[in-house]
C-alpha cells in the first residue's frame, strides 16, 4: 500500500515539477524545479529497487551538474518576458519536433523486438543473490567494458576541450608558487647592512 502511495506521490510531483521547469517565469525557479524533478526520479528508482542508480542520479546530476547550472543561471540577468515574445511563431515548429519525438518513443516502445534472453533479463533491478551495485559492476566491467572506456574517453576529450577553450595566459600576472615560497630562506630574503650614522643606505 505504501509503495503505491509513494509511487503516485513521486510521479505526481515529478510531472508537476517537470511542467513547472518550462512554465516558471524565473529561470532560477526553473532550475530549482528541475532539481526537484531529478529528486523525485531518484525516488522512483528507489521504488524500483535500483538504489545505486538513484544515488548516482542525485550525486552526479543534483549534487554537481545542477549546482553548476544554478551557478550560471543565478548570475545571468535574463528578462524572460523579452525572450518569450514571438514564441508563438515558433510554436508550430516546436510542436512538430515534439510530435516526432513522441512518435519515436511510441515506436521504440511498441515495435522494438527484444531477444528472448534480454526479455528474461528485463525488469530485474535486483537480480537474485546480489545487490544491484554488484550486478551493474559485473555487466559494466565485463560485457560492456569497451563502451565504458569509450564513454570515459569522450568525457576526457570534452574536459580537455573545455580547458583549452578557456585557457588564456595573461602577461604580468603574479602567481603564487608555494614551492618557491617554501624554498626561500632567511639568507635569500634578508640583506644585512652595516650603516654608519649620518650616511644612510
Amino acid at each position: 500500500m505504501f509503495e503505491a502511495i509513494a509511487f503516485y506521490f513521486f510521479s505526481a510531483i515529478l510531472i508537476a515539477s517537470a511542467v513547472m521547469v518550462i512554465a516558471a517565469r524565473n529561470p532560477v525557479h526553473s532550475v530549482l524545479f528541475l532539481i526537484l524533478s531529478f529528486f523525485n526520479a531518484a525516488g522512483l528508482f528507489v521504488l524500483l529497487g535500483a538504489e545505486f542508480l538513484a544515488m548516482i542520479l542525485i550525486v552526479v546530476y543534483v549534487g554537481a551538474v545542477a549546482v553548476l547550472f544554478l551557478f550560471v543561471v543565478m548570475m545571468l540577468d535574463i528578462d524572460f518576458a523579452e525572450l518569450k515574445r514571438g514564441s508563438l511563431q515558433y510554436l508550430p515548429f516546436g510542436a512538430l519536433v515534439g510530435l516526432i519525438l513522441v512518435a519515436e518513443l511510441v515506436m521504440a516502445g511498441s515495435v522494438w523486438v527484444l531477444k528472448p534472453a534480454v526479455v528474461a533479463a528485463k525488469a530485474s533491478a535486483t537480480p537474485a543473490g546480489v545487490t544491484n551495485t554488484v550486478a551493474l559492476g559485473r555487466i559494466l566491467y565485463t560485457d560492456y567494458v569497451y563502451y565504458f572506456q569509450i564513454a570515459g574517453l569522450v568525457l576526457l576529450v570534452a574536459m580537455i576541450g573545455a580547458i583549452v577553450l578557456t585557457l588564456r595566459s595573461r602577461p604580468g600576472v603574479r602567481r603564487q608558487v608555494i614551492s618557491v615560497q617554501n624554498a626561500r630562506t632567511a639568507a635569500m630574503a634578508v640583506d644585512m647592512h652595516d650603516l654608519k650614522p649620518g650616511e644612510g643606505a
Binding site: 545505486f52 544515488m55 542525485i58 543534483v62 549534487g63 549546482v67 545487490t131
Partner: peptide
C-alpha cells in the same frame, strides 16, 4: 540499513550546498 549507505551519505552532504545557494540568491 540500506545497501548504498555510503553513497546516500555522500549525496546528502553534497546536497547541502543548495541551502546555501538558495539562501544567498
Amino acid at each position: 540499513d540500506i545497501n548504498v549507505g555510503i553513497l546516500y551519505l555522500f549525496a546528502m552532504s553534497s546536497l547541502g550546498v543548495y541551502g546555501i545557494i538558495m539562501a544567498g540568491w
